[in-house]
Design a protein around this nucleic acid. Structure first.
Lengths: 192, 192
DNA sequence: CTAAACATGTAAAGCGTTACATGATTCG
DNA sequence: CGAATCATGTAACGCTTTACATGTTTAG
């Protein structure tokens, strides 16, 4: 259900075509809520069927066409309900910690590879989050750029602060995962 | 696909009926990989169809019956492939951080509620992980009890250490989430 | 006898992944 | 004229959730 609100969050700032939305998505909200285009187009159709957004067809050249969507009042209300309502937490389902719990059954090399890969995975994510924070702060982020025109100065600061806050949380989590993997590597050393 | 290996991990220690497995599951591996019984029974059927486990029917009283499953050689091999193979990480899809990124659109009270609930959620998890660690170390954990009979002294220490390691990772993550939520509450104070 | 625990599922719907599929336009 | 980019999807499959569904045995 969150995909819907991730899309709505972008569309609220201004009308977009499915394609534009998808491009913008992948370099902004898509970082915290991944979705491929094959999921975005059908979801837009469903949202239109539900009255949350309204699309209008445009022509492009001779035969080209595209559909520009904008948020309806019902869509604005729905987004507001979501952002102000409770969030339900899904049950824990964690492949890495599941595996870690049974690592005595793996070969020492495989165990080491797993932990090194875990650290590498989260190091990559950490860099991504740090880059995003830098881009948001510097104003070069596409999301921030769109907002410049859409919201007043006063709201802008709040918007930037919350985005940075969100990505800092992800960065801290990544750091925590890296520390954990390193603890695991030291544990392997001790046990061998 | 991980559910399969979570089940195999338990069955490897010794044969169990679906019901026993499900009970044991919910108080051990189920903490890191949740699954309801309605998912466990069909998965057992599928695993048997794939030759990873073999079931045998037992009678219970007059008309009662139950099916006891044990792991086959193919199942052991499959588990080994999984534990020694690479783990693929799924794309980021995080409802809490998605919401945090758009928190400027929420009312101040709703934002505060959200962050307080996030801290509460992870405080509860933290306690769960800490309890699990204590239970594992003290040997009162059902999983550890079953292992006592099944594996030699030398392997036992390794098994316990890795379980503790896994739950410590989850505890550290919970602590990180709580710190983040508290940072968010302070940010709200600053912005108001 | 009745409640708790034992025992095992089915059905429907939604979400997500992967692969496939097609065509138009613009820029160099 | 060819490549990149614009533009929009469908199909099949698998996992997860939620709700429903049914019956037996044992202990008090």
């Amino acid at each position: 259900m969150s995909l819907r609100y991730a899309l709505l969050a972008l569309l609220r700032v201004g009308p977009l075509s499915g394609y534009e939305l998808q491009k913008l998505f992948s370099e902004s909200v898509g970082h915290v809520w991944h979705a491929p285009d094959s999921q975005i187009y059908p979801e837009l159709k469903r949202m239109e069927a539900n009255g949350l957004i309204q699309g209008e067809d445009q022509t492009r050249g001779e035969r080209g066409r595209r559909r520009i969507y904008h948020v309806t009042d019902a869509g604005t209300a729905d987004f507001s309900d979501w952002i102000n309502g409770p969030l339900d937490y899904s049950r824990v389902r964690d492949p890495a910690h599941l595996r870690a719990a049974y690592l005595e059954s793996a070969s020492p090399e495989a165990a080491r590879d797993f932990l090194a890969a875990h650290a590498a995975q989260h190091t990559e994510l950490l860099h991504r989050w740090q880059d995003e924070i830098a881009r948001i702060r510097s104003g070069s982020h596409p999301m921030v750029q769109r907002r410049l025109a859409a919201i007043p100065e006063s709201e802008r600061e709040r918007a930037v602060e919350f985005k940075v806050f969100a990505y800092e949380g992800l960065a801290q989590r990544a750091e925590s995962e890296i520390r954990w993997a390193e603890q695991g590597l030291r544990l392997l050393d001790r046990l061998s």
